[in-house]
Design a protein around this nucleic acid. Structure first.
Lengths: 107, 107
DNA sequence: CAATTCAATAACTCGCTGGCTATGGGTTTA
DNA sequence: TAAACCCATAGCCAGCGAGTTATTGAATTG
């Protein structure tokens, strides 16, 4: 099983897929048909993207008769932000180490 | 010119490239040779990845004789975090709208 | 100056994936 | 129940990109 941020980066790297996700974030609940109408690609292509988004935990679906509604899954982006903070944190730690070193040299 | 987060997602989607960037964040300045020693791929492959990272603004290089040192560029991840916050923000706004609606209905 | 080392570029191969069309299963409508 | 509609799956194709080896340029070493 890959780390959480791994699948997120791969999934959100595709512009079309990210656009679908953004639309779900901005406008909330949407049917596949509505998403297809704005995506500029075929319905099967949209369905495939939604499948990928769902497997990444970025989206959840709701069945209502013959319609399928999709909505953005909240908090799914957390690992991504966490990873970014971790990276900048490493830098901060090195900065702290440098400060410690300078402090010790000062004595 | 693409949006800032666009290139970041594409660049960081590759595991090898992300590993190189993580190493630079964790351990700071590194030569191409040192990075190659830990990457498990050939030196040209590493150089190509470093080129991509550099064009994305995630990394900067420093020439010292025949060696080239690379280091992580701070703040390059900001647009990524910004985008994530924006997405969750949209959801928050919809939540606020719902609260407003309910408030208005209550009167 | 010859040999060696470091890194970048060139040229190529190959697997992955995002797009398509065709089809099928399930649901509503006439 | 026949027809139309919504969405998912299957199967196929083309382009991209990550890897390779070969080569070159530049800098250090002997």
């Amino acid at each position: 099983m890959p780390l959480p941020h791994e699948i997120l980066f791969k999934t959100l790297a595709d512009p079309t897929r990210r656009a679908i996700f953004e639309r779900l974030c901005r406008e909330g609940d949407q049917t596949v048909g509505a998403l297809t109408a704005h995506a500029g690609i075929s319905q099967p292509a949209v369905s495939k993207h939604l499948g990928v988004l769902k497997r990444a935990g970025l989206v959840k679906d709701r069945h209502e008769g013959r319609l399928t509604h999709y909505s953005a899954e909240l908090g799914a982006l957390d690992p991504l932000v966490g990873w970014a903070k971790e990276m900048t944190g490493f830098w901060q730690n090195r900065f702290d180490d440098l400060e410690d070193l300078l402090k010790r040299m000062d004595q």
